Simulated assay, not measured.
Amino acid sequence: MSKHLERDLQTLEQALLAQASIVESMIRTASRALCERQVELVWDVMDNEQLVNAREVTIEEECLKILALHQPVAIDLRRTAAVLKINGDLERIADLAVNLGERARALDNYPDFYGSENLQKMATMSVEMVRGAIDAFVEFDASQASRIRNRDGEVNDLNVLLIEEIHEIMRTRSDLVEAALHYFSATRHIERIADHATNIAEDVMYLVEGEIARHRYETQPQNNPAK
């Protein structure tokens, strides 16, 4: 590998880590705005949206330049591909943080609506998954990425519990149905953040191991009942 390629890859990866830091801050702030009813924090999330969008385009352009100019192979090609894919997931997570902020503003109109501790747990877990997936990328650690991937089931389980709680509110408090629908949307946004964190973890596994981890469990050979 040429020193020019290594320099460009390092610059690219640093740009991705800076983007990840901004996005992580956005989801932490949006979660606080929602769970702690600090609606004034939403403006901080909104202010960062355009920055993230602009940086996403720049990072993608740099990935394409590296592919065109250096024509990387093997691990260098995987590094570039991983950055390209992670970059897209981070931008989508930022969009979901904005959506969370919008739900926080909507729920501010319903002071009688009380949230669930499970939403706070779910939000915290999703933020931890994003942070852990990025750490696995930095540390080139497929084992850590695999652990992050496996936590998605925990978030899904909390989501099921939250949906049951929301259904109960809608059955017993007709005056809070609209608020409950906003809350349901918030749970979906948080669950999607965890899904994108899982995508990032799988990209890290691909980067390190050279094998696509996505849907790997679906491709395991099945026992032949005829034998």
Results as ranks from 00 to 15, higher is better:
residue 1 M to P: 13
residue 1 M to W: 07
residue 1 M to A: 13
residue 2 S to V: 05
residue 2 S to L: 07
residue 5 L to I: 07
residue 6 E to H: 15
residue 6 E to A: 14
residue 7 R to L: 07
residue 13 E to L: 05
residue 15 A to I: 00
residue 15 A to Y: 05
residue 17 L to W: 00
residue 19 Q to P: 01
residue 20 A to K: 00
residue 23 V to D: 01
residue 23 V to F: 03
residue 24 E to D: 07
residue 27 I to W: 09
residue 27 I to Y: 11
residue 27 I to H: 09
residue 31 S to P: 04
residue 33 A to I: 05
residue 34 L to S: 14
residue 36 E to Y: 09
residue 39 V to L: 06
residue 44 D to G: 12
residue 46 M to I: 14
residue 50 Q to N: 08
residue 55 R to G: 04
residue 55 R to H: 09
residue 57 V to L: 14
residue 58 T to K: 09
residue 58 T to L: 12
residue 59 I to K: 00
residue 66 I to N: 05
residue 67 L to F: 15
residue 70 H to P: 15
residue 71 Q to V: 13
residue 71 Q to M: 13
residue 73 V to P: 00
residue 74 A to E: 02
residue 77 L to T: 07
residue 85 K to D: 05
residue 85 K to E: 10
residue 86 I to Q: 11
residue 87 N to K: 10
residue 88 G to I: 13
residue 88 G to C: 14
residue 90 L to R: 10
residue 95 D to E: 08
residue 96 L to M: 12
residue 99 N to C: 10
residue 99 N to P: 01
residue 100 L to S: 03
residue 100 L to A: 04
residue 101 G to Y: 06
residue 103 R to Q: 13
residue 104 A to Y: 00
residue 107 L to T: 04
residue 107 L to H: 02
residue 107 L to F: 00
residue 109 N to P: 00
residue 110 Y to A: 15
residue 110 Y to D: 15
residue 115 G to Q: 13
residue 115 G to P: 03
residue 116 S to T: 12
residue 119 L to G: 08
residue 120 Q to A: 13
residue 130 V to M: 05
residue 133 A to K: 05
residue 135 D to A: 11
residue 137 F to E: 09
residue 138 V to W: 07
residue 138 V to E: 14
residue 140 F to R: 11
residue 141 D to P: 02
residue 148 I to E: 02
residue 149 R to P: 00
residue 150 N to V: 00
residue 152 D to G: 01
residue 155 V to P: 08
residue 155 V to Y: 05
residue 155 V to F: 10
residue 158 L to I: 12
residue 158 L to G: 11
residue 162 L to D: 02
residue 163 I to N: 09
residue 167 H to P: 00
residue 168 E to T: 14
residue 169 I to H: 01
residue 170 M to C: 11
residue 172 T to Y: 00
residue 174 S to L: 13
residue 181 L to A: 08
residue 183 Y to M: 08
residue 188 R to H: 05
residue 189 H to T: 02
residue 197 A to I: 06
residue 204 V to I: 13
residue 205 M to Q: 12
residue 205 M to K: 08
residue 206 Y to Q: 10
residue 206 Y to D: 09
residue 209 E to W: 02
residue 214 R to M: 03
residue 215 H to P: 15
residue 222 Q to G: 13
residue 224 N to D: 15
residue 226 A to G: 02
